[in-house]
Every structure is written in C-alpha cells, then in structure tokens.
Amino acid sequence: MLELSHVWKTFNAGTVNEKVALQNLNLKLEPGDFVTVIGGNGAGKSTMLNAVAGVFPVDEGSILIDGQDVSALPEYKRAKLIGRVFQDPMMGTAATMQIEENLALAARRGKPRTLRSGITAAERAEYREKLKILDLGLEDRMTSKVGLLSGGQRQALTLLMATLQQPKLLLLDEHTAALDPKTAAKVLEATKKIVESSNLTTLMITHNMRDAIAYGNRLIMMYDGHVVVDVRGEEKKALTVERLLDLFSQASGSDEVSDKLILS
C-alpha cells in the first residue's frame, strides 16, 4: 500500500546545520498493516511521515501509495490518499471554524471545491452519528468553534476527520504525546477502533514503547534515518521492552542503548 524505496532527505544542505534526516530509507507496507514506529530523537520518524505526506519533496528515491508514484505531487494533492493526525492538537483543525464545518471540509478531501453548499443537512445528520462514536458529547456542540475544545477532544475530532473519507494510508505523528495519560489512552482506543473497523493501512509514531508493542500488527524502529528493526506477526505479539532494546543494540551496532531512545 505504501512503498518507500531509497529515500534520502537532507535539511540545510551545505550549511553548518546540515542534517541528513533520511538515509536510504526503504519500507513497504501491505494493505491493512498497522505499523507502530519508534526511535530516538532525530531518528527520522517525523521526517518520514512528512516526506510521505509531501510537506517537502525528498532529495532522492520514490514514494508509492497504492501503486501510484506520489513523489512529485504537492501536499494538497497527496491528501486525497492520506489521512493525518499531528502531534500538536492545534494543527489538525481550524480553531475559528465550527466542529461541523471542520468535518465538512474533511469530508471533501480530494474532491474539487465547487460553489455548492459547504455543508448539507444530510451531512449534519451523518456527522452527528459519527461524533457519537467518539463518546465525548461533541454531537451536541456541532456549531461550537473548535477552538473551545480541549486538546484531547481536538485530537479525537482530527482522527475522525482523517478517516471520514476512507484514506489509503493513515499517518499518526505522536498524536497522543501532548495529551494527559487518561485522555491519551482514550484517543488511542478510539484510534484502534477506527483503524481495525475500516482495516486502514496505518503508520503510527509513538514515544511510548509499551504502546508500540500493544498496538498494531507490526513494529519498526528507526535509527539514523532508516529502519533498523522490523518485527511483525507472532514475533511482534511476543515482543517485550527488554527484547526490543536487545534488538536495537544489535541493529545499531552498539550496546550503549542510548538514554535518549528509552526516555524519548
């Protein structure tokens, strides 16, 4: 469903701040894969997601989504295939617009924006039903401005928006990192429910190893701009944090398991 081959990306090339963020990154996702992504700071997790989403072009390599080469497409065109939830709850929604307006915008992802009405009565009824599933009481506040919602509510709404139009690929960039533990758990459960019910191909970055082990059918660990650990199936189910750290030191060729990786 997603195929990254030989992807390179360098930021600030030719300056003192030069940073090779992606180094010959290769990754292939099968349809329905729910992949959790872990790795230390600067390992290239977010860069990978942003490269797939088209926030910036990559220097080399190709990105295929559902067999279509999207490497040259701008971000807004790739959005047709991709649903996204960001780490920052402020980023995924328009604060000054109503809940239902945000949903209506998301429902038209990948479709031409015409002079037809921006939201219809039929849609309102549909959104009300979908919001009920989130169980946050948002179905009764559909004309409230999104800016009035809490971070958790906004993330849940963004998640719903990302999946309103079934995407070929769902990208979650530490989408629970900014939330308190209780809310984070709730949003993660909602994520699991949505991903499994629609069998969405998903990449989820998390800073929490236990979550990375508990969720998904496959886990990858990134280091230095590429994938160093890739476990799936039965092996993934049997994974423990200790085993994960072992795998990391083997792959990275050093046994000083960096504090960064554990803590971040």
């Binding site: 807004y76 328009a94 915008l105 038209r108 992802r109 479709k111």
Partner: peptide
Amino acid sequence: ASIRATGANVHMARAQGI
C-alpha cells in the same frame, strides 16, 4: 469554506487536500 480554512489553519487545509 476552503478559503476560510486556508486562513484559519494552513496545515489543516493542506492536509484536507485544499
């Protein structure tokens, strides 16, 4: 509405294919 979204949050707008 997509113009209003562009002004309100450009990241969100692009992620929604605008």
